[in-house]
């Protein structure tokens, strides 16, 4: 009885602490974005509510926030889509076909992904400048796909490995080609894993900073994280209100995506495929 109570208190206290710990920066961000005196970071000013910052972020043409947001969404969406498609095909062949040196391939991919971004970025810049892609979507989409692929591959390999092999065999018996097995059986069954991987890939690309900073030069391809970081006021001061309002808006697509996909990311969809 007493033990139960202690446990309960610890769990509740722990959860509250975790939630506050994680959400406090967001609350701060939102508060600042709604404040008419956003420089209250240091000074002891009173909070007064305003939508001025949002209005200015969304309408000031020189800030290009809408452009950045569009760039971000398009680039991240394309990157995540291709990344998951490639990773899913690769994961299928690694888990199902008798490839030689499967484990080697898998670990090689992991090893490659361990290079720090900074070690790649100067070469990437040279390369992109050479092919004339600097400040285009392509300049970010291709590196993003390559950069996120290892993670997606590993997640999907572990997911596909859980799908019983008998489903593939049943598909073969029922007359499917390999491609039909993939499209009609494996992908639908693995849908939760594929959706969550896609979401993760999207968030990764959406938050990426280094490549975006180096490979873009203006609002034609610049993404939100870089764009916000480079916000400047008229006289070179940091416009905290605009920055925070922009950041708050930026979190919205991710939140919406998460809520949308949450329906799909339900566990245990394979239940009932095999015994038990």
């Amino acid at each position: 009885m007493k033990e139960e109570k202690v446990k309960f208190i610890i769990i509740i206290a722990g959860s509250i602490f975790m939630v506050i710990f994680c959400i406090l920066p967001f609350i701060f961000m939102a508060l600042v974005s709604f404040s008419s005196r956003p420089d209250f970071l240091s000074a002891r000013t009173l909070f007064s509510f305003t939508l001025k910052n949002y209005y200015s972020v969304l309408t000031t043409p020189s800030l290009h926030f809408i452009d950045y947001l569009r760039n971000s969404l398009v680039i991240s969406g394309i990157s995540a889509g291709f990344c998951v498609l490639i990773a899913a095909l690769a994961a299928y062949s690694i888990t199902r076909l008798s490839l030689p040196h499967k484990t080697f391939i898998l670990f090689f991919v992991l090893a490659v992904s361990m290079f720090p971004q900074i070690s790649l970025v100067s070469y990437l810049f040279k390369f992109m400048a050479g092919v004339g892609w600097i400040n285009t979507y392509r300049a970010l989409v291709f590196p993003y796909i390559a950069w996120i692929l290892p993670l997606s591959l590993w997640i999907l390999v572990s997911y596909f490995a859980q799908i019983p092999r008998d489903l593939d065999r049943a598909g073969l018996i029922d007359g499917c080609s390999r491609w039909q097995i993939l499209r009609k059986i494996i992908f639908p069954v693995a849908a939760p894993g594929i959706f969550s991987t896609a979401l993760l890939a999207f968030i990764f690309a959406f938050n990426e900073f280094m490549f975006a900073l180096m490979l873009t030069s203006d609002h034609h391809a610049r993404t939100v994280p870089v764009g916000i970081a480079l916000f400047q006021g008229l006289h070179g001061e940091l416009p905290w209100g605009d920055i925070m309002a922009a950041s708050t808006i930026t979190t919205i697509p991710v939140v919406i995506l998460t809520i949308m996909f949450q329906r799909h990311i339900i566990q245990g969809l394979t239940r009932g495929a095999v015994k038990g």
């Binding site: 019983p164 008998d166 489903l167 065999r169 049943a170 018996i173 029922d174 007359g175 499917c176 039909q180 009609k184 059986i185 639908p188 069954v189 849908a191 969809l269 394979t270 239940r271 009932g272 495929a273 095999v274 015994k275």
Partner: peptide, 25 residues
């Protein structure tokens, strides 16, 4: 035709669609 020890039914399809699957293919 093969009946597997684990049955290997397609979990994402209804019973009707499971049975219809080979015909649809």
């Amino acid at each position: 035709a093969f009946v597997f020890q684990s049955y290997a039914l397609y979990p994402h399809l209804s019973v009707f669609e499971n049975i219809a699957f080979p015909l649809r293919i």
